[in-house]
């Protein structure tokens, strides 16, 4: 392989003016993805960014890579076609809570179970932004939006639980207001061989401002979230004095010394799923970082292996073999 030129984040900026609302969380995700791509040592022409529809899905236009702005909910399916057609490409899906979990929910779960080697960045702002403020499949119950003026009645998805349930091999969560953490998580996703699902808590300043404020503001972040680092103890708190320990089927707060070690590589998705239950407990920190990271063969690799195996066995078929099969007969 030829020497890859060291790329910088700016090499991934297209000449298009970024048109998200001032203060939108999308800006920091764009920057995080550009930095991560630059650091991967992959030639720029080998990146393909695919999106669906929604605010987040304008993303490919701002990236100086190959890209396709698809149709609503279908980015995962389009990206599957790109990756299976050419596994040498690094394929990234940009989607949102409406695009990826509502209209595109089916493609999301199937691309995760197939373990197509692509990076799925789901911008979760718990609202439909581009259509100007309707409740989404992650909007908490009771939320007042334009289509739920008396409060939303729908029970929401927890995106991490959905991904785990679908058999995802890599599941992680980060937030728009912590670029350093986001970079770590995106890097881990980029290095994962297989479908990598990353939920990004992203603030919509116009239609759902402050949705994550109680967890992400600097003043409370260390107390209200916990960064799960593979192989390290589960510690949180401003003074890093608290920990989480697993006790049978429960997770309890303990001292930092007593904290259990987090391991997202275990076969069972059970511990990760248990960790997501903390999202429902007001007094507990919400889990961030890498919740699951396991190895499983990817669909794209298996497809090509199978083509190779069948070709090895039957020999490369020619156009003539295809048409002139042994059951044909000749009329003189």
């Amino acid at each position: 392989m030829s020497v890859v030129q060291q790329l910088k984040a700016k090499d991934f900026k297209s000449d298009q003016e970024v048109r998200w609302c001032p203060g939108c969380g999308d800006y920091s995700i764009l920057s995080g993805v550009q930095k991560t791509m630059a650091d991967m040592g992959i030639p720029r022409e080998n990146y393909v960014v695919v999106s669906g529809i929604g605010c987040s899905s304008r993303f490919p236009y701002y990236m100086e890579t190959y890209g396709m702005h698809g149709i609503h909910g279908r980015a995962n399916a389009i990206a599957t076609g790109v990756k299976v057609a050419n596994p040498d490409l690094s394929v990234w899906v940009i989607t949102g809570d409406g695009d990826g979990l509502s209209i595109g929910g089916n493609h999301m779960i199937h691309s995760l179970r197939r373990n197509v080697d692509m990076k799925i960045i789901l911008f979760n702002n718990e609202i439909y932004g581009l259509t100007k403020g309707q409740y989404s499949p992650t909007t908490p119950e009771g939320t007042k939006t334009k289509t739920s003026p008396y409060g939303s009645l729908d029970h929401p998805f927890n995106p991490i639980q959905l991904a785990l349930g679908a058999g995802a091999t890599f599941v992680a969560r980060t937030m728009d207001v912590n670029p350093k953490h986001m970079k770590q998580v995106l890097q881990a996703a980029a290095e994962h061989k297989g479908a990598a699902f990353v939920e990004v808590w992203q603030n919509c300043v116009i239609f759902n401002d402050g949705a994550y404020k109680s967890w992400t503001e600097k003043a409370v972040r260390d107390e209200k979230t916990i960064n799960l680092v593979p192989g390290e103890k589960m510690i949180f708190g401003k003074d890093r004095d608290k920990g989480l320990s697993t006790d049978g089927c429960r997770i309890t707060v303990c001292s930092a010394e007593e904290a259990s070690v987090w391991d997202p590589t275990v076969d069972s998705a059970g511990p990760a799923f248990m960790m997501t239950q903390l999202d429902n407990e007001p007094d507990m920190p919400r889990p961030m970082g890498v919740l699951r990271s396991v190895d499983r063969p990817t669909l794209d690799q298996q497809v090509w292996d199978q083509v190779g195996a069948v070709t090895g066995k039957k020999g490369e078929g020619t156009l003539k073999d295809l048409i002139y099969t042994p059951d044909c007969w000749v009329v003189e």
Binding site: V48, V50, Y66, M68, G70, I71, R74, A77, I78, A79, T80, G81, V82, K83, V84, A85, N86, L89, N106, H107, H110, V303, V307
Partner: peptide, 23 residues
Amino acid sequence: ITCQMEDEIAGICTAIGASFAGR
């Protein structure tokens, strides 16, 4: 390469993705 997809929409969308990639 054949991919039996999860639905009709995914069928055509993977085909579009594959065409974008040069198949």
